[in-house]
Design a protein around this nucleic acid. Structure first.
Lengths: 183, 183
DNA sequence: GTCTATAGGTGGATAGAC
DNA sequence: GTCTATCCACCTATAGAC
C-alpha cells in the first residue's frame, strides 16, 4: 500500500477536506512528517491523486478502445468502470472533488476539469462512431449527449452511495443507455 | 441575514466540512461564541440547515402541485428549482452533503435521505400522473425514472458548477425531459 | 527516507461576565 | 443574547537528528 493508495481511498470516501496527513500516516504506520518528504504540501498530494486517477482512467479507456467491440458494448464497459468504483464503496474521485471545487487549490481545480474534458472527448468520439454505424440513435449533438451521460453517471453514483445501494446506480445507467442512446 | 442564511450559502458552495463557525461569525459581524447559543454543536446547525432546506423545497413542490398545469410544465418548474439554485452560484445543499455523506453526523445522514425520499416520491407521483394522462411516455417504472431524474439533475449541477457554466445544467435537463419522458 | 519535536494556526466548544 | 477569554484537539508544515 502506497501513500497514494491510502490517500485515494480516503479522498474517494471522505473528500479532500475530509482526511488529513494523520489519517494516512495512521493507516500506513508511519509519521506525518515522513509523508511531507514525498508530498511537501497537501495540494501536491491532491494534484498527484488526480493525475494518477486520470492516468488509470485513460489507460482503461484505451483498453476499451483497443477491442473491436460494438459501440454499445464499449459503452457498457465504460459504465463498468464507474460501477466497479462504486462496488468498492467509493465515489468517483473527480465527482467527489467537484463537490469541493470551490475549496480546492487552483492546480487541483485545473486538473479536475482536465479529467472531465478527457472523459467528455472519449464519450463524444464513441457516440459519434456509434451513430455513424447506426448502433446508436440520438438527435442531439454527440458532445451534449456525452456531457449528459457523464454528469448523470456522477450524480447516480453520488446518490447511490448515500443509500449504500449500488443497484441504484445500475438502474440509472441501464435506463440511460436504453433510452438515451438506444439502437 | 440570519445564521442559517449564511451557513446555508457556505454549505452549498464549500460543503459542510468546508466552513466553520468562524466563517459565519465573520460574515455576520458577531463572535463564534454567540453562534453556539443558537446552535450548540455544528451537528445541530447541520440538521437545522437540512430541515429548513427541506421545508423550503417542499413548499415549492406544493406550489407547483397547486397549479392546474400540464405535467410537463410542472416538471419544467421542478427543473427550475434546481436551475435557480445553480444561477445563484450554489450547488443543491443535499447533493453537496451527499458527497460528504460518510463524514456527516448520523442525524444529518438520516435527514439527507429524507430529502431525497421526498423528492423521489413527488417526482414518482408526477410521472405516474403524466403517464396516466398520456402527457408522458416511458416504459420503466415511475419510481426508477424518478430516481434517475433526481440523480441526473444533481450530477449535472455538480459538474456545471466546476465549469461555472449553468448552461451545462440546462442542456442536460432539456435532453432528459425530451428524451426520457417525452410526450 | 523516516524519525522526534515543535511551530503556528484553526477547528468546535465551554465558562462566566455583562 | 452577545461578549471575552480560554480549552484542547487537530491541522498543515518545518527543522534537524539519525
Amino acid at each position: 500500500m502506497t501513500i497514494l493508495d491510502v490517500a485515494e481511498r480516503l479522498a474517494q470516501t471522505r473528500g479532500y477536506n475530509g482526511f488529513s496527513y494523520a489519517d494516512i500516516a495512521a493507516h500506513l504506520g508511519v509519521t506525518k512528517a515522513s509523508l511531507h518528504y514525498h508530498f511537501p504540501s497537501k495540494a501536491d498530494l491532491g494534484c498527484a491523486l488526480i493525475e494518477r486517477y486520470q492516468a488509470g482512467f485513460s489507460a482503461a479507456l484505451e483498453v476499451i478502445n483497443s477491442q473491436s467491440a460494438k459501440p454499445m458494448r464499449k459503452l457498457h464497459q465504460y459504465v463498468g468502470l464507474y460501477d466497479s468504483v462504486l462496488r468498492n464503496d467509493r465515489m468517483c474521485l473527480c465527482g467527489m472533488l467537484a463537490a469541493e471545487y470551490e475549496t480546492l487549490p487552483a492546480p487541483m481545480q485545473d486538473r479536475l476539469k482536465v479529467f472531465f474534458d478527457i472523459n467528455e472527448r472519449w464519450l463524444t468520439a464513441l457516440l459519434q462512431d456509434g451513430r455513424r454505424s447506426r448502433s446508436f440513435s440520438f438527435k442531439e449533438s454527440a458532445k451534449g449527449r456525452a456531457r449528459l451521460l457523464l454528469a448523470a453517471f456522477e450524480g447516480a453514483m453520488l446518490v447511490a452511495r448515500s443509500y449504500g445501494d449500488s443497484s441504484r446506480f445500475q438502474s440509472a445507467a441501464t435506463q440511460l443507455l436504453k433510452n438515451l442512446i438506444g439502437g
